[in-house]
Nucleic acid binder design. Structure first.
Lengths: 205, 205
DNA sequence: ACCTGAACACCGTTCAAGT
DNA sequence: ACCTGAACACCGTTCAAGT
């Protein structure tokens, strides 16, 4: 990716270059694994240079996943701010944004949520980033609760139920389980809206 | 795993031996990758023998995922049959079984749902196995619908919303995102029940 | 048909060595 | 401090050869 002047050093930006190169390669090699040597080559350094910044491959992958959480949180935050006066629309549009993130960045979503990284043993900064994303959801639920929109149930339970629904839908779509039902972008948006509504109202008569 | 008489052939059971060895190794190497050579060694054959039964590693992984779907479907089917007279309990207990499957077989669940396999390009038998699992859910929803339990909405939408919620919860737990909220088995069961109930009744007041 | 051993091009990781 | 090249033990896959 970034060409460095031959013979010069990276002076600290190599870490970011490697993460960027990693995300780029991840997007290019559809669903394929990521080679540390390949990342190094794209970043313009020898294949051992990454070890100055990451203790092993897993740590680089964790760093990439972390940027994914930052992006997802930033995306959702922007939407949440736009609809801050209407809690119902805030919920619906944030849900749609979550689904779109997974559909638009399936490899990053795979890394974040696919089980390659166990959050129990993940680096602290990654845990923090993922927790911060969940916190935004909790705020949104709390918002609606104070507006009298949601049940007077433990906010945590409301948040987990909502998160589970949107999260599950995102992964089912991203992994191709629902192509029969929703192939195009507009069909996906439509399905996401209907599911979000059912999560809200329940499936019971 | 299975020892063959030295010098003898496998006569068709090698395929199954490889799948079994693969699942065993997958369970042992927590979250670690699976080496085709390792699988072959455990099955007691040379590292090129698997190519007689699988065109590449991805095809073996797909076959392992397939056994996962068969098991999940069989597990859920047993539960569905037990509670066939009470649609509400049928739904709740099948949901709990789904979550337990993911928690008890995190590596297999990772393989099935983690994004390593894109269902759009998966082998037909795998597509069929995953579809058959979803069909059971559709039956369960249809059951409850005829008993007047669910909304008069498109069954597909009801099924997708339910599946998404249970699926998302399973993966969030299996990947360690909810350890703060549910660590022990009984806590997980409790959370699953409360979430299943919220999916049913909705989060709206 | 079914399996093997050697070979190829890769991979992650370590380490002594260079600036 | 930051980076390199050689080396090690692995890997997936191919292929000619064996029964």
């Amino acid at each position: 990716m970034r060409k460095k002047a031959p013979g010069s050093y990276h002076h600290g930006d190599l870490r970011r270059s490697l993460i960027d190169a990693g995300r780029m390669l991840l997007a290019k090699n559809n669903s394929g694994g990521l080679s540390l040597r390949e990342v190094a080559k794209v970043a313009g350094v020898s294949h051992t240079a990454p070890y100055r910044h990451f203790k092993d491959k897993a740590e680089l992958l964790a760093a990439i996943a972390e940027t994914g959480f930052h992006q997802l949180r930033a995306d959702a935050e922007r939407v949440a701010h736009t609809y801050r006066e209407t809690p119902l629309q805030q919920y619906t549009h944030c849900a749609a944004r979550y689904v779109r993130f997974a559909v638009e960045n399936p490899e990053t979503a795979h890394l974040m949520f696919g089980g390659g990284i166990d959050m129990r043993t993940a680096p602290p900064s990654l845990k923090q980033a993922s927790w911060a994303t969940f916190e935004l959801l909790i705020e949104i639920i709390e918002n609606g609760k104070q507006a009298g929109l949601y049940k007077a149930v433990d906010t945590m339970d409301l948040a987990v139920a909502t998160w589970s629904g949107i999260h599950g839908l995102s992964l089912l779509i991203a992994n191709g389980y629902l192509t029969q039902l929703a192939a195009s972008d507009s069909q996906i948006d439509g399905l996401a809206q209907r599911v979000a509504r059912l999560l809200l109202e329940g499936i019971r008569k």
